[in-house]
Design a binder for these strands. Structure first.
Lengths: 214, 214
DNA sequence: CTATTATCTGACCGGCTGGTCAGTTTTTGT
DNA sequence: ACAAAAACTGACCAGCCGGTCAGATAATAG
């Protein structure tokens, strides 16, 4: 009486304690391997070896590599979203929201740099393999979703007069690019002062967005 | 009397007309395949098929896949650098230099989006496979090189009083991130107005860098 | 025209990939 | 205690990867 919902992602309906634990363990080790070797270098053999289990176990608990990657993506994506938007949505003005958005993004990636790297790696890989029926839609939608949330903050700021006139989409793309690039550097040089980075980033985009004073 | 310098990259010493043509052809098709399928999906078989030649021809003219990728990287990287810095270095003030830097970057990627995508794909892949003796150093150095040039422009602006006080490195990383992310979007949605993107980007970072007026 | 060299083909190789499965061990239920 | 279900192992598979090579073909030189 095993595989009930395997492919039915999301809600963990009737899973054993052991199964739940194994899945979590595998996902965690998968993240480590992806962060270390990139998506292409994250083979099932390597993930299994890292977890100290047989390769077959992964196939037993997941419907293949794609399913595992999808799990990694959705798990840490939602984890990040919750962390960030719990704080962002608590802000009243768009200015505060944007500032909090930048700050919590940096803060989150300082605590979980591997998670972010893994998510980015998967999304990029999924984008590249477009048309080969992988996790396509989801991955592209993640980018778009993240972007549209940011766009709505920016638009709100423009409507309230806090922000100047600019293309919210270009601004959002630039902000995401800045954040993701800084994430790469935090991973490469872990000994940097994250708080300073957050200050710099907020100072930068506060000036880039606010109404011209003159 | 064939392979003379094969591995000795760079200067094409004594190459046949045919060899030179074939190499160029292979590199061009390699770029197309990388841009379309990503680095991981750019197999020798696919590149050969696209070029309408046998797989062995690639091995005949290049010392393996790494050599081909290295060729793609160096060729289009230098091409881009020349295009951009020919204009950037002609500017007198740091403000003009930065503005030209942003504008020509967008302009270049509008003309050669595939080249840029290919370079980014290779650099990312090389970064991931770090420690596995590929083109490691070079790829990381490209990023660092690109970054240090930008940093020097920013530092110059700060010394001349054009720019406010900020961490030039963080700013440079953010600018690169914004440019590269926009590149991805231009590739995804080719029907956007590139000129507008350039205007938005310059407006954004002009405000982010300039001395506060008050 | 002929011999030599350069170029190219297509079959082939070992190695690694994701994935499968018969059989063994562990956990669970009674 | 014991049977059934769950969890796991390790050997195995086909398929693709980068790369090689003997032999076919094309270009060139004498």
């Amino acid at each position: 009486m095993n595989n009930r919902t395997k492919e039915g992602m999301g809600t963990h309906s009737g899973r054993t304690f052991i199964e739940e634990a194994r899945r979590r363990q595998i996902v965690q080790h998968a993240v480590d391997v992806i962060a270390e070797h990139g998506f292409a270098g994250a083979t099932l053999a390597r993930i299994a070896e890292r977890a100290g289990i047989s390769k077959g176990v992964i196939s037993y608990h997941f419907d293949g590599k794609d399913d595992l990657m999808y799990e990694v993506l959705t798990l840490y994506e939602s984890e990040e979203q919750e962390f960030i938007y719990a704080r962002v949505d608590a802000q009243e003005t768009a200015t505060d929201a944007l500032q909090m958005y930048l700050r919590t993004n940096i803060e989150y990636m300082a605590v979980h740099p591997k998670h972010l790297k893994a998510v980015v790696e998967i999304v990029i890989a999924a984008k590249d393999s477009k048309g080969k029926r992988k996790f396509d839609v989801t991955s592209v939608e993640w980018m778009e979703d993240e972007l549209s949330r940011l766009v709505s903050i920016l638009t709100r700021g423009q409507e309230s007069g806090e922000f100047r006139t600019f293309d919210p989409r270009v601004m959002a793309i630039s902000i995401r690019g800045a954040i993701e690039n800084i994430a790469m550097y935090i991973l490469t040089y872990p000994d940097i002062n994250v708080s300073d980075y957050a200050d710099e980033l907020t100072g930068m985009f506060m000036r880039a967005t606010r109404e011209d004073s003159g």
